[in-house]
Design a protein around this nucleic acid. Structure first.
Lengths: 206, 206
DNA sequence: AACATAAGCTAACGACTGTAAAGTGATGCG
DNA sequence: CGCATCACTTTACAGTCGTTAGCTTATGTT
């Protein structure tokens, strides 16, 4: 609508537009919160670009969407990684990872749904998965977790957090008449119980 | 394609078609496993009907989809209810409910996703929620659960199972290099840990 | 200054969508 | 037997979509 006519990119670097298109696609799905909003023309509008211009950088819509998903998985992994890095003790790292994960899901609802709606997401999540599994293993080694299988229990935690991330906030307490159900305590409860962490509340720092 | 020309419904009961349309819509989304397949014309094709005929029974597509969702929520609740009714002890009821819930999600992937993609699902899930919460409360009363808040912990279990139901089967072990991760044991582990059920393995009947 | 080319455009296609309007033909009642 | 009504149908419109073909124009090189 606000047609502030784009300046064409300099000669050598037409690849600049590729990044712009990707960003446009991501902000489009994030702002509309609608999985189906990710159309070729929609992205073009968001980027102030003509639709066919996208074909110079992505052979078709499917490839563009895949690029969005791949980028999103990296963003998620990075977010979890830095959250873990900010903590020292393995149990605290675990909790921080869980918080970062759920935060991502809640802050980018439609995008997160899309990430797990398409098949083949598991391979993209492998990176983050390994990170968390290591952390849990260290908890076991430190004797503060009763788990006997770090990978299996990591999967369980992942599934549970995925559930929390998918059930959006407004639905939580309102209809189900849950009293105080604040998120940090909730996440800590879930993770502690599933990983059998019985250690002292070093996690309680929230 | 196989145009086995429909017989028109008798005079009084034009409402028969309403049910046929609903069934057609459900089988359509279930067989295609695609959320976006639920179009007015697609449903019409599935029901061997002309598209505008649907308007005699549903004022627009949105209302048809809502009817599908409402019906699906009832189906889910009914499935969970009967699964629980087949068990005696409260802990066994709890586990049966979880199994039935996840089964539904896995057997109707696209439909399940649609149920929780649209807003306002929480009010529809209230029925099932209450059922499970009661069951957990009985576990607490019987002294086999360490939980202190049946409703809150039911929500946690729900979220976790929702996560399991949403992560589809093939993705489980394959990419994550988990060994044996059979579903019944997995569900039992999740539910036992989250509800703090420490009782004797009366649940082990699987 | 001339020219090749990169960067992006407009126009157009075929297919699909939800929905409105108007038609058809069997059915059951008076 | 006639006729109104119900249960649908065909036709049509306006809008969206992905994608292709071909054009324009600025840019960097020679």
């Amino acid at each position: 609508m606000t047609d502030t006519a784009r300046k064409r990119n300099p000669r050598g670097s037409g690849d600049l537009l590729r990044e712009e298109i990707l960003v446009a696609a991501i902000t489009l799905i994030d702002t509309t919160d609608d999985t189906n909003a990710l159309t070729l023309r929609g992205v073009a509008r968001q980027a102030s670009i003509s639709a066919p211009s996208i074909y110079s950088h992505f052979d078709n819509l499917t490839l563009l969407v895949e690029a969005v998903l791949q980028s999103s998985f990296h963003e998620l992994a990075e977010s979890v990684r830095t959250a873990m890095a900010a903590e020292q003790q393995p149990a605290a790292k675990l909790l921080a990872a869980g918080r970062a994960y759920v935060d991502f899901g809640w802050q980018h609802k439609a995008r997160y749904r899309l990430m797990f709606a398409e098949t083949g997401y598991a391979e993209n999540a492998v990176e983050t998965f390994a990170l968390v599994a290591e952390s849990l293993q260290r908890c076991i080694d430190a004797g503060i977790s009763g788990s006997t299988d770090a990978r299996a229990d990591t999967w369980i935690v992942w599934a549970a957090l995925h559930g929390v991330a998918t059930l959006d906030k407004p639905a939580r307490a309102d209809y189900l008449r849950l009293g105080a159900l604040d998120r940090p305590a909730l996440l800590e409860t879930i993770i502690r119980r599933l990983t059998l962490i019985h250690g002292p509340p070093a996690l309680a720092k929230l």
